[in-house]
């Protein structure tokens, strides 16, 4: 009986969706983290949280202004991007993304305007109105992967949730870095009470970050467990991630550098309360989430299909 076979001729497989899209997913994740933190800060309606609301609102607008550039550059027929508007296919997650990416900028601008003008009642209303859109701007990217039925690593309902959680992790990490920079370089003239409040806010954000890292690691563990005990293509993806060419990036950068090490650092009180410790942990997290996006998008297409 023939037990195995060797493929001696086949056409080479290509990875259709590459690094630009992975970076786009990363940036929309940062956007969601920024916006969510900003809206939470606005809803709290406390004086000391107002700087966070402003940083988040502006940060969300800036990153979302950059993100579509990656999408456009990635198209092989860039001049035809406008086809996305008249030729709508409601079954395609990219079409959903077109709606969300178009709807967010005006809502985000109005929200930011009210936050900076100090109209907190209006800011709350617009913030809440924009929240589902802002979440969807990143959430739809998870659906792009989940509905890509041909790829075992993509085709899981965990992906949209994992993307949202990791977006919160990366957004919070970047906000903590920005707030620390603001606190130590631009808020020297603040009074002692405001400074103490700022430190309290940073602590709260770090705790939130810690919680989201745990959720993210749990979801990744679930994903891995299913891959390891599923069909041949899923198992091959599992091998690729744990023993194959993507193992150093997955185990080394995504899980260890971007997940376990920050978790350990933030568990130690002296490091958690120190701005340098927070900064290092957050930088590691940002690297880890970028690695995660690349692994899911590019690594997920690295399994031969024919």
């Amino acid at each position: 009986m023939e037990e195995s076979a060797r493929v001696i001729y086949n056409v080479p497989f290509v990875i259709p969706i590459g690094y630009l899209i992975a970076i786009y997913f990363y940036i929309t994740g940062l956007h969601m983290g920024f916006y969510t933190t900003s809206v939470v800060a606005t809803l709290l309606n406390k004086q000391e949280w107002k700087p966070i609301g402003k940083i988040g609102a502006v940060g969300a607008l800036i990153v979302l202004a950059v993100a579509p550039i990656f999408l456009l550059v990635d198209l092989t027929q860039m001049a035809r991007f406008w086809h996305l508007f008249p030729y709508i296919n409601l079954r395609s997650p990219i079409t959903w993304g077109t709606f969300f990416l178009t709807a967010y900028p005006p809502i985000g601008l109005i929200y930011a305007w009210h936050v900076f003008r100090g109209n907190y009642r209006a800011a709350k209303i617009w913030g809440l109105c924009g929240f589902p859109v802002a979440v969807s701007v990143h959430g739809y990217t998870g659906f792009i992967l989940a509905l890509g039925a041909g790829r075992a690593f993509w085709n899981t309902s965990l992906n949209p949730i994992l993307f949202l959680v990791s977006a919160m992790v990366s957004g919070l990490a970047l906000i903590i870095i920005i707030i620390n920079i603001r606190y130590y370089y631009f808020a020297k003239n603040e009074d002692a009470a405001q400074k103490a409040a700022d430190l309290g806010i940073i602590n709260t954000l770090v705790r939130m970050l810690y919680l989201f890292i745990i959720i993210e690691l749990f979801l990744m563990g679930c994903d891995l467990a299913v891959l390891a005990n599923s069909k041949a293509e899923e198992y091959q993806t599992y091998l690729l991630l744990t023993r194959g060419s993507w193992a150093p990036m997955f185990l080394g950068v995504e899980l260890t550098l971007g997940g376990v090490i920050p978790l350990i650092l933030l568990s130690i009180k002296r490091i958690r309360l120190h701005p340098v410790g927070q900064g290092i942990a957050c930088l590691f997290i940002l690297c880890g989430i970028l690695a995660m996006r690349i692994i899911i998008v590019v690594g997920g297409q690295s399994v031969m299909l024919h």
């Binding site: 969706i17 027929q77 792009i144 890509g148 041909g150 297409q301």
Partner: peptide, 20 residues
Amino acid sequence: HRCIGCRYCMAACPYDVRFI
């Protein structure tokens, strides 16, 4: 005349028979 080259169809095809 309509394809924008997003390559999502290539990534989603389980048989990997599409190309640019």
